[in-house]
Nucleic acid binder design. Structure first.
Length: 231
DNA sequence: AACCAGGACGTGA
DNA sequence: TCACGTCATGGT
């Protein structure tokens, strides 16, 4: 890998951060805490607060969100999450006790309801078996419904592990810029970032969130990347 | 009215 | 391994 590519990864990060600022991922529906320093951070995004999740319940909410947002707009995933909250099932055992039809109805706005119902139940079983231990990436990938991006999202945002998250936007932006081939494999694109960034969870979290922020503005409509200030 | 959304899986070359 | 089709609802 050339020095130029290496520098580009950090340079783009700094540019995105300058453009959009800290993103406060992973958003949580509500942030209840008894930490006096964090009272007032009430909902959704939480810029510059890298201590979350602070409870197993918040971690579980993140995990549910990673499944619900698969190939689905985040706003739609939030609707499903709110329905689950109304049912008081953002709790592993309670979700497993919920009947399939009620669960399907709740997550309907997020789409793929038949698949995601199974996926949510599968990851919940896995989460219970973990008993608050940190899962390995390979363990996560064995869970039905958990692929590369979901595994990395769970580890990076749910468990604060230094795993860079690659998504469709990442591939779209960095191939458009010309830094990588558009067909680059997930693992290779992931390693490109991990090799050229300090192994810092905060940077990994912000960079991925910034990529999504930027892509929503310039890479949603085909042809992609028109007027991208990075290129 | 196509196209896209913070993908993953199953199948057959 | 690789390219495709499938899964589903909602917004633009």
């Amino acid at each position: 890998m050339s020095v130029n590519e290496s520098e580009q990864i950090m340079k783009i990060y700094k540019e995105l951060y300058a453009l959009y600022g800290p993103q406060g991922w992973w958003p949580l529906m509500e942030l209840e805490t008894d930490n006096p320093d964090k009272i007032g951070v009430t909902q959704g995004y939480h810029p510059l607060n890298y201590s979350l999740p602070e409870t197993p319940k918040q971690r579980y909410e993140i995990i549910l969100g990673t499944i619900l947002t698969q190939n689905t707009a985040w706003a739609s995933a939030v609707k499903a999450l709110k329905n689950l909250k109304k049912l008081n099932v953002i709790h592993p055992m309670k979700l497993l006790l919920l009947d399939d039809e009620t669960l399907k109805a709740a997550i309907r706005p997020a789409g793929f309801l038949n698949l995601k119902t199974i996926y949510l139940q599968e990851i919940t079983h896995f989460f219970l078996l973990l008993d608050n231990q940190i899962p390995s990436r390979d363990q996560l990938l064995k869970v039905k419904g958990v692929g590369n991006e979901t595994a990395d999202s769970i580890l990076l945002y749910g468990y604060k592990q230094p795993e860079f998250v690659v998504d469709a936007y990442t591939r779209r932006i960095f191939s458009h810029i010309g830094l990588v081939d558009e067909k680059i494999k997930y693992g290779n694109l992931k390693k490109l970032f991990e090799k050229n960034l300090p192994q810092d969870v905060r940077i990994y979290q912000e960079y991925h969130a910034l990529i999504v922020k930027h892509a929503k503005r310039y890479y949603q409509k085909n042809p992609y990347g028109v007027d991208d200030p990075l290129s």
